[in-house]
Design a protein around this nucleic acid. Structure first.
Lengths: 189, 189
DNA sequence: GTGATTATTTGATCAGGATCAATAATATAT
DNA sequence: ATATATTATTGATCCTGATCAAATAATCAC
């Protein structure tokens, strides 16, 4: 059950067998049904998820009441509502399993205690933060430099599986365009 | 010369006097003239700046040849081209002193060696990364949820000194709108 | 201080994508 | 399997902010 997570971690940092077991013991299993929310706005629980199978979607509600997708997390990736995870505040986003999913999760408190007890874990978290920053920066840059059509073409080029795997509605939402506009783009107009 | 930096650091982490001196000794002084570039796209040098006085602007060139402002850094804040600082790659952005400025800087190599030699420094950097992530996330959210007019109004509300201090051209660029549009917004249409 | 450059304002036009509406296709539940 | 709900497509219209252009105003360099 923890093989994928083990590989993910040991690919990134070096840990003694004992420390690795200590880390793994902080992760619990959670099976989520399609469309189930595993994190809800306003909840105090901040969990860090690792996706074994399936897909998570983090989104928030815009002032106009519509949803805005923050990101997707597919197999073998970590996902959390990082803004709340960082400062311990209540969740400001929902996290939804958009497919039937198999997740591992650790509570914020356990995660942070690992930072103090396992030397390598600070490096792991640093790497996580750096990667999160890079990803975010790239996404912001895409919004600043590209129009909707160009954003779609970039996604298609760099993440074709996302376009294939997800319903139009979610792809459009992630690109911050209407599904009508995406539909027209796909049909090549 | 290092008083502001000392305060900035000691407000955030606890350091022995010896460690503090070790940190401070890594920072050099740089006076920059208005419009001078203190970091250029393609350069190998990755420096972390602390603004004692003046203002830095980080920007990159869009595919269409125009500039896009990543952020401004005013007095008492750190600034670096973080994407290159993180992975050691060549600079992908310019950093410009938009006013006559007084800067302290440390080289990436020195900064990273502090991470290994001074225990508290890892915490300092973690805080820096977390803050950078939060800032970036908020900015991305603004682009996703607000139209140009609303972005301007938000900036005016949350950062009025930025609108007052900077030329329209740069404010507009930061908001990713044309200066014509900003001019019309300011005149209240 | 004067000329030259750069920034701001104002006007006219245009286009991309949003919105609204209706239908068709899929997926879901019982 | 059928009914229901959700998602996708297509069409018509509209609106915001971009673009282009020209005139002023403000800065800068010498």
């Amino acid at each position: 059950m923890h093989e994928q997570l083990t590989k993910y971690i040991t690919d990134r940092i070096q840990l003694s067998e004992a420390d690795l077991q200590k880390v793994l013991s902080c992760f619990n299993i959670l099976k989520a049904k399609k469309n189930e929310l595993v994190g809800r706005t306003g909840e105090p629980s901040r969990r860090m998820f690792f996706v074994n199978k399936g897909c998570l979607r983090v989104y928030f509600i815009k002032p106009n009441g519509r949803e805005a997708t923050r990101r997707f997390a597919f197999e073998n990736s970590f996902s959390t509502s990082l803004t709340s995870f960082i400062d311990g505040s209540l969740l400001k986003e929902d996290t939804q399993a958009i497919e039937q999913s198999e997740l591992l999760y650790t509570h914020r408190e356990d995660f942070y205690s690992l930072l103090n007890t396992i030397p390598g874990w600070e490096i792991f978290y640093r790497g996580f933060l750096e990667y999160a920053y890079l990803t975010n920066t790239r996404r912001l840059e895409d919004f600043i430099t590209l129009n909707p059509r160009e954003r779609y073409q970039l996604l298609l080029k760099e993440n074709p599986q996302m376009v294939l795997r997800l319903p139009n509605k979610l792809v459009a939402n992630y690109l911050n365009i209407t599904q009508e506009a995406l539909s027209r783009m796909k049909s090549g107009m």
